Computed example of a mutant assay.
Amino acid sequence: MWVVPLEQLPLWGPSTDEDPKPKPFLARPAKLRLLITVKAAPNPSARYGETICVGALGMDPPWTGWIRLYPVHYRHLDGDGQFHKYDIIHVDALPARQDQRRESWKPIVDTITIERHLASRQSRRNLLDPLVEDSMCRLNKQARDDPGIRSIALIRVADISALQVKRHPGWSAEDRKKIARYFDQLDLLGRPAKRSPLHAPRFTGAYRYRCADRHCRGHQQTLWDWEFVALQRHLGQLTEAEAEEQLRSKFLTQLCAADRDVAFYVGNQAARPQSFSIGGVYAPRRPTARYRLHVNR
């Protein structure tokens, strides 16, 4: 069992977002300044070939707090727009009217510009640590009682019992239809045929863990992190057992080590608001004993 020591718990304050804010109605796009926190794994799209869902933290009033951008056809972005985790970006976007989740925005992707990468770990902690919450159990209950409740959170992990890595079953029939429609669309428009379909990843992943709620009986949630899928591409020459070992080494042994403050970026689905999955891992290293001693003086 990978145990995250509970001595760091007072480091993070509880969420104060108890009063749900209604989704705004805007006649024209808002200009958002965001810290990218999650890039989810791509999924097939009939229009773009593939799209990703992006989680971010709004940095400037009035658009602060958690924000979801979808759809983002990331592979089609030019070099100046291909952002990475913990980049600060600017983008014009409108609240997603067909999505009841209040954090969801529809970006105008060709307006994306990158301001800079937030490289300082302490700067990241200053922004993100106050948002970490104790209880996935509580968030699940809130979502069952009210589908319009918060759909994104950063949940503190008390201990992790496993990272389950399983063979991906392949795209669903609906996903295969989307891929086929994408290529049919290209043919009809006479565009160059040098396009490659989105291949299903080799593996799926799911964490089994307990949140920091003292009554927690455990959670199992699928991992949809872009980085989990991207690493698989570099492991293509390995056997299945070897690749599984490398994935667990990175996402369990390293990221969830005892010297890290581990929390999961979680989000739910528009069609299934009671179902949360993990979009990414937040795992800054804990201060050393010497550093804590210095601070306490």
Rank of each mutant, 00 (worst) to 15 (best):
V54M: 07
D145I: 05
D17Q: 12
D19K: 09
I152L: 11
A243V: 09
S151E: 09
I108V: 07
R28Q: 15
Y282K: 06
D261A: 03
L247H: 04
L9A: 08
V4S: 10
P287T: 06
A162P: 05
I112V: 10
L238R: 15
A173I: 08
E50A: 13
Q254W: 03
Y282F: 15
K177Y: 14
E115R: 00
R102D: 07
A193F: 12
L247D: 06
F203M: 00
L127Q: 01
G205D: 07
E240G: 05
E244G: 06
F183Q: 07
Q185P: 05
P29W: 09
V266C: 08
P107R: 00
C256K: 01
G58D: 01
V281W: 07
R167V: 12
C137E: 15
P95S: 08
R125H: 10
T51Q: 00
Q185T: 10
E244C: 10
V72W: 09
R138A: 12
A206K: 04
A241D: 09
R290C: 09
Q246S: 10
K31F: 07
P147G: 02
V38D: 12
W171Q: 09
Q164K: 13
P287V: 12
I114A: 03
A27W: 04
Q274G: 03
I52V: 14
H76C: 11
L252M: 06
Q8N: 12
D213T: 13
S120L: 09
Y282L: 05
I89A: 06
P42T: 12
G65E: 00
G218I: 13
Q246A: 12
N126C: 08
L186N: 06
E18Y: 08
N140R: 13
Q269E: 11
R214E: 15
V295M: 15
S161F: 00
Q164H: 09
L118A: 00
Q232W: 03
D259R: 01
R47W: 00
G49A: 03
D17A: 14
G170V: 08
T113L: 00
A289C: 09
F251R: 06
L188I: 03
S172F: 04
H76Q: 13
R290H: 05
L69R: 09
C211S: 09
D19T: 15
D110F: 14
V295D: 13
F203G: 02
T253G: 02
L247V: 14
D146V: 01
A258T: 15
R217A: 08
I114E: 05
R272D: 01
F228K: 12
I36G: 10
D129S: 15
R286P: 04
Y207I: 10
H199I: 11
L235V: 14
P24Q: 05
R214D: 13
L11Y: 10
A93E: 05
M1K: 13
F25H: 14
D145L: 02
N126T: 10
L11C: 13
W63R: 02
P284R: 11
I155A: 01
R121H: 11
K166T: 15
K106S: 05
P42S: 14
Q82F: 11
G236R: 08
S45A: 10
I112E: 01
P61K: 00
V266K: 01
D110I: 12
A193Q: 13
G58T: 04
L77A: 10
L188D: 07
P61F: 02
Y182V: 01
Q185V: 04
Y86T: 07
H168S: 08
P5G: 08
L186C: 02
P201F: 03
T37E: 02
A40Q: 14
